[in-house]
Simulated assay, not measured.
Amino acid sequence: MKKTFSVLMATVLAAATLAACGSSKAPETAAATTAAAATEAGDAAKDTTAAAENKEAAAEFTTITPGKLTIGTSPDFAPYEFYHINNGNPELVGFDISLAQKIADELGLELQVVPIDFDGILMELQNGNIDLGISGFSPSPERAQTFDFSDIYYTGGQAFVIRKADADKYKDYAAFDKLPVGAQTGSIQMGLAEKNTPNANIIGLAKVTDIVSEMVSGKLEGAFIEKAVAEQYIKNYPELQIAWDVEYDTEGSAIALKKGSDLAPAVNKVISEVLADGTMDEYIATAQELASDSENVFEGQLDANGQVAAN
Results as ranks from 00 to 15, higher is better:
133 G>F: 05
130 I>E: 00
166 D>S: 14
156 G>E: 08
186 G>L: 08
118 F>M: 07
142 E>M: 14
97 I>L: 11
154 Y>R: 09
113 V>S: 03
140 S>W: 04
168 D>G: 12
152 I>W: 02
155 T>A: 08
151 D>P: 05
111 L>H: 06
99 L>M: 07
142 E>N: 13
142 E>W: 12
165 A>Y: 06
186 G>P: 03
101 Q>W: 02
143 R>C: 05
191 G>L: 11
125 L>W: 11
199 N>H: 13
134 I>F: 07
101 Q>K: 15
195 K>A: 09
161 V>N: 03
141 P>N: 05
187 S>Y: 12
114 V>G: 00
177 D>W: 08
106 E>L: 08
189 Q>A: 15
192 L>N: 11
102 K>P: 00
123 M>Q: 11
195 K>I: 01
191 G>N: 14
164 K>H: 08
160 F>A: 02
132 L>K: 13
115 P>Q: 10
155 T>F: 09
97 I>P: 03
164 K>C: 02
117 D>R: 14
108 G>W: 07
135 S>V: 10
160 F>H: 03
178 K>G: 01
169 K>F: 11
161 V>M: 11
201 N>I: 13
104 A>W: 05
191 G>P: 07
107 L>R: 07
128 G>D: 05
203 I>P: 01
103 I>W: 02
145 Q>P: 00
194 E>Q: 15
113 V>M: 07
145 Q>F: 03
196 N>K: 13
101 Q>L: 02
134 I>C: 06
185 T>P: 01
121 I>M: 10
143 R>S: 01
135 S>A: 15
157 G>H: 09
115 P>I: 09
140 S>Y: 06
106 E>K: 15
125 L>D: 01
203 I>N: 09
176 F>I: 12
101 Q>P: 00
182 G>Q: 14
177 D>N: 12
129 N>L: 07
112 Q>K: 15
136 G>K: 04
149 F>V: 09
150 S>K: 06
96 D>P: 06
201 N>H: 09
160 F>K: 05
202 I>N: 08
190 M>N: 05
201 N>W: 06
203 I>S: 05
191 G>I: 13
94 G>D: 02
161 V>S: 03
178 K>C: 00
115 P>C: 07
103 I>E: 00
145 Q>V: 11
116 I>S: 04
174 A>Y: 02
107 L>K: 08
149 F>N: 06
108 G>Y: 07
144 A>F: 05
184 Q>P: 01
139 P>F: 01
167 A>T: 09
184 Q>A: 11
171 K>H: 09
137 F>T: 06
157 G>M: 07
151 D>M: 12
196 N>T: 04
180 P>R: 12
163 R>H: 11
175 A>N: 09
94 G>R: 12
125 L>G: 05
132 L>R: 13
98 S>R: 04
94 G>F: 04
163 R>P: 04
151 D>F: 11
135 S>N: 13
186 G>A: 04
196 N>D: 02
96 D>F: 06
177 D>E: 09
161 V>G: 01
181 V>F: 13
123 M>D: 04
169 K>D: 00
131 D>M: 12
103 I>L: 10
202 I>M: 07
110 E>A: 11
167 A>Q: 11
106 E>W: 03
178 K>A: 12
155 T>Q: 13
98 S>M: 03
111 L>P: 03
175 A>C: 04
156 G>R: 06
125 L>N: 10
108 G>C: 02
